[in-house]
Write a protein that binds this DNA or RNA. Structure first.
Length: 567
RNA sequence: UGCCCCUUAGCUCAACUGGCAGAGCGUCUGACUCUGGAUCAGAAGGUUCCUGGUUCGACCCCAGGAGGGGCAACCA
């Protein structure tokens, strides 16, 4: 505190190693232009939390350094891509709160890429290989043994050029020829053993139609697309580290001056879920979830429907940081971020998931009292309240009553007292059961002196939520939980896959819940805290004005559950 | 039996580039409470993967080793 040189104002903001490098670029003027990044999804699936990390990084850097960030679709594989994914991706990026500078498609670069392919042939740096896939693989060697040159490696420039042009013209069938970079079949980096650049695919492309029958591969298209767009730093995940050699080789030999440089960072892994498009696609296709936007999915669309706010996702991305080592994040870290975001934002309401009827025997028949219920707790800097009707017959949650309670159970039990939130202290006088012995009603008395906010200094240990029976609205409440029952669903014994550890209780539906009437005037898609239960949103797809459906976004931290676990 | 990357608290990251290893989350304890939430206070938790070396001084530099991960698609 006494050292003025360390005052908060000149404390350097905490930076990850990538921002460190970008700051250096800016300081040294390395690229001679403002930092330029891009988010390069392939339109073959929906975006998920892992992509959100990359989106926040790429767009965040552009924003912080006064640079630009493009959205570029890496659409070089006609077999798997679709315009519906393009649309979903654009919607998700916007929803996360980012605006791209340029919207580009690798498929728009096919012409330029082809020109570069010819130029590489002319320089003797690429050749047409006519081995089949199997032969190419065999002759590439293995990680521990060098590959050997194939029989077509030393074709003349003229022959290569002729073959390449005829490939483009559609003279050959799929798989008969490929264009390969001519580098070194014995290169210690497998990626550099004459990587395939272009393959023949007589397939319809969702954007280019049938204009092309040859398509570039990732290595050929990606770095060159970056270079064409004037990207400075090309951010990608760790598994592309080895690809950096071919990235650099290509931008150099294509003649780009001041080309982009690739930097790799660790992809996100989150406990109790999977973050791979391939696996998420299986969950959708095999019916384990109800679609890409199922609220249990870690997709952006799923999180949006679940009710998570984009602010929370951005905060999460900041929290986990960016590093060069594998990162598996605890679910608690994500959940804390979601709760923390909602806590300050959303109004509180009362909703009873499993109604148990309570009759207040000393409450005047037919009398309704309107209570004033504040919508925010004292420590949330928001104001507002709604009227809450109270009457002789109420519903409370079934699990707030125990006939034979353990110690420390501060809710209702025979002879015990509890406060009704915003209302009065009640005492359980009688338990009514049906013939099967099920508790079907509680007969209680209330203490008229103990109205909430009144002068009574009577204290009880517990406060419970409730809804007046005559004013209650039936609704459906869907409680979502983790999709998998183990932290790492990918870590399975031989022959078992991630679908064997799906959590059977990832969705629990309460079809006969009741909620206070005040929510009826809110638009569908409104978020709430159901007091003592969790945060919820009215489901945009399935709610109707007659029947609201609520998704649980996240539970509250549950001290009682912890108490139970301790025994 | 190759090349590359990584290793600091349970988790995610710091440590001003060689100067007393810290923060957030989580955990535990306590206080308070008309949400068993939130909030507040406190605590525990470390051989900085190991072994050598350089140095007055090493998480940081050097050498060797261990462990984890990536690479042998005409996927990205």
């Amino acid at each position: 505190m006494t050292d003025i040189s360390h005052s908060p104002t000149d404390a350097a903001p905490r930076r990850d190693f990538i921002r460190e490098l970008v700051a250096e670029d800016v300081a040294t003027g390395r690229f001679g232009r403002a930092p330029a990044t891009r988010f390069p999804p392939e339109p073959n699936g929906f975006l998920h939390l892992g992509h959100a990390k990359s989106i926040c990084l790429n767009f965040g850097i552009a924003r912080e350094f006064g640079g630009t960030c493009n959205l570029r679709f890496d659409d070089t594989n006609p077999a798997t891509e679709d315009v519906k994914y393009v649309e979903a991706i654009k919607r998700d990026v916007q929803w996360l709160g980012f605006t791209w500078d340029g919207e580009y498609y690798a498929s728009d670069y096919f012409e330029q890429l082809y020109e570069i392919a010819e130029s590489l042939v002319l320089k003797g740096l690429a050749y047409v290989d006519s081995q089949n896939e199997e032969e190419i693989r065999t002759n590439r060697g293995t990680v521990t043994s060098p590959g050997v040159p194939g029989p077509y490696r030393d074709r003349s420039v003229e022959e290569n050029l002729d073959l390449l042009r005829r490939m483009k013209a559609g003279e050959f069938a799929d798989g008969t020829h490929v264009l390969r970079a001519k580098i070194d079949l014995a290169h210690p980096n497998m990626i550099m053993r004459d990587p395939v650049l272009v393959r023949i695919r007589h397939a319809h492309h969702y954007r280019r139609g049938d204009a092309w029958c040859i398509y570039p591969l990732y290595d050929f298209a990606h770095g060159l697309s970056d270079a064409i767009e004037g990207i400075t730093r090309s951010l990608c995940t760790l598994e592309f580290k080895d690809n950096r050699d071919i990235y650099d080789w290509l931008v150099q030999h294509a003649g780009f001056t001041s080309p982009p440089t690739q930097i790799e960072f660790a992809r996100l892994e989150l406990d109790y879920t999977v973050l791979s498009k391939r696996k998420l696609l299986r969950l959708v296709n095999e019916g384990y979830v109800r679609g890409w936007d199922d609220p249990r999915m870690p997709t952006i669309a799923g999180l949006r429907r679940r009710g998570v706010r984009p602010e929370a996702i951005r905060t999460f991305a900041d929290t986990i940081g960016v590093a060069r080592k594998d990162a598996r994040i605890e679910l608690a870290t994500f959940e804390h971020t979601v709760r923390d975001d909602l806590n300050m934002e959303v109004p509180r309401v009362l909703c009873v998931l499993e109604p148990l009827k309570v009759t207040l025997t000393n409450w005047p028949e037919g009398h309704v009292e309107m209570l004033d219920a504040s919508s925010y707790p004292h420590d949330v800097p928001k104001t507002g309240s709604r009227p809450m009707p109270m009457s002789r017959e109420l519903f409370i949650d079934r699990n707030d009553f125990m006939e034979d309670p353990p110690k420390k159970f501060h809710r209702l039990s025979p002879g015990a007292e509890v406060r009704l939130r915003f209302g009065y202290i009640i005492k359980c006088e009688e338990v009514v059961k049906d013939d099967a012995g099920n508790v079907i009603e509680l007969r209680c008395t209330y203490d008229a002196e103990t109205k909430s906010g009144g002068s009574s200094d009577r204290k009880v240990k517990g406060t419970i939520h409730w809804v007046s029976a005559a004013h209650a609205h039936r609704c459906e409440v869907r409680l979502y939980d983790r999709l998998f029952s183990v932290p790492d669903p990918d870590d399975r014994p031989e022959g078992e896959d991630f679908t064997t550890v799906l959590n059977p209780d990832s969705l629990v539906t309460h079809a006969d819940a009741v909620i206070e009437p005040s929510v009826l005037t809110d638009p569908i898609g409104s978020r709430y805290q159901f007091e003592r239960t969790g945060y919820f949103i009215s489901d945009v797809e399935d709610s109707t004005p007659q029947r609201l459906v609520f998704n649980r976004i996240i539970s509250l931290r549950d001290g009682w559950a912890k108490e139970l676990k301790k025994g």
